[in-house]
């Protein structure tokens, strides 16, 4: 049958489900080994964070889509968790090969890293389900589109930005359209979101300048 936009969207959802149905929503044995190699084992923090962010995601999903859709939100979060653990394992493996070290205590105990990685996984899931061939304005699904997830997880845009390239690099199942979508997220962060007036980036730039000994005032964002 001819490939229609609706069929393409359905195929993308089906492909994502097939890949993630065989994945676990718990850390694999390999990932557990990376955790136990850390100076400080992050296992408990990882599990607690997942639980906490899961509640935030489900609450906000139900608020955006409808209280009757709590179960759907929970199912999508589970898909996101599977992708999160899958990508985390590949990412740490890739870092192990690149850096020839086994102890990733600093990275695996970094809250911003985990939250960004999970946000990126959920962005892939949400965008896969949210694709509409009809640009008919705001629907309940498009309300969940980027940068919605940053708000839900109270995540700094430039932290989210940091994981995108590595995420694309280590996840072979991402289709061209999804890579394009993540690239558009990158561009939006770089061109506007990271430079909004409430962005912590201005404070970080100021601190960086002060450390260098040049106390300049960061320029405020232009209108």
């Amino acid at each position: 049958p001819p490939q229609t936009p609706v069929r393409a969207a359905m195929n993308s959802i089906q492909q994502l489900k097939v890949i993630l149905n065989s994945a676990s929503d718990k850390p694999s044995e390999n990932l557990k080994r990376y955790f136990s190699n850390c100076t400080v084992n992050p296992s408990e923090d990882v599990a607690q964070r997942v639980e906490c962010l899961g509640r935030a995601f489900s609450d906000r999903f139900a608020l955006a889509v409808g209280q009757g859709c709590t179960e759907i939100g929970s199912q999508r979060f589970t898909l996101g968790i599977r992708l999160y653990y899958r990508v985390m394992e590949s990412m740490v493996k890739s870092e192990e090969e690149r850096l020839s070290v086994q102890n990733f205590s600093k990275l695996l105990n970094n809250n911003a890293f985990h939250t960004s990685l999970l946000a990126c996984a959920l962005e892939v899931v949400t965008a896969t389900y949210g694709w509409s061939p009809f640009k008919s304005g705001s629907t309940s699904e498009t309300d969940l589109s980027f940068p919605w997830i940053l708000d839900v997880f109270e995540l700094r845009a430039f932290d989210f930005y940091k994981v995108i390239e590595s995420f694309i690099k280590v996840e072979p199942s991402l289709k061209r359209d999804m890579i394009k979508h993540l690239e558009r997220c990158e561009h939006r962060i770089m061109e506007s979101i990271a430079w909004r007036s409430d962005s912590a980036l201005f404070e970080l730039l100021k601190q960086s300048k002060e450390q260098e000994g040049h106390v300049d005032h960061a320029e405020p964002p232009s209108t």
Partner: peptide, 21 residues
């Protein structure tokens, strides 16, 4: 088989990116 521009260079990965703040 995509046009994504990989910009990270050698010595730049998630380990370094999340180490800087």
């Amino acid at each position: 088989n995509h046009d994504y521009h990989f910009g990270l260079e050698e010595g730049e990965g998630v380990s370094e990116l999340f180490d800087c703040d």
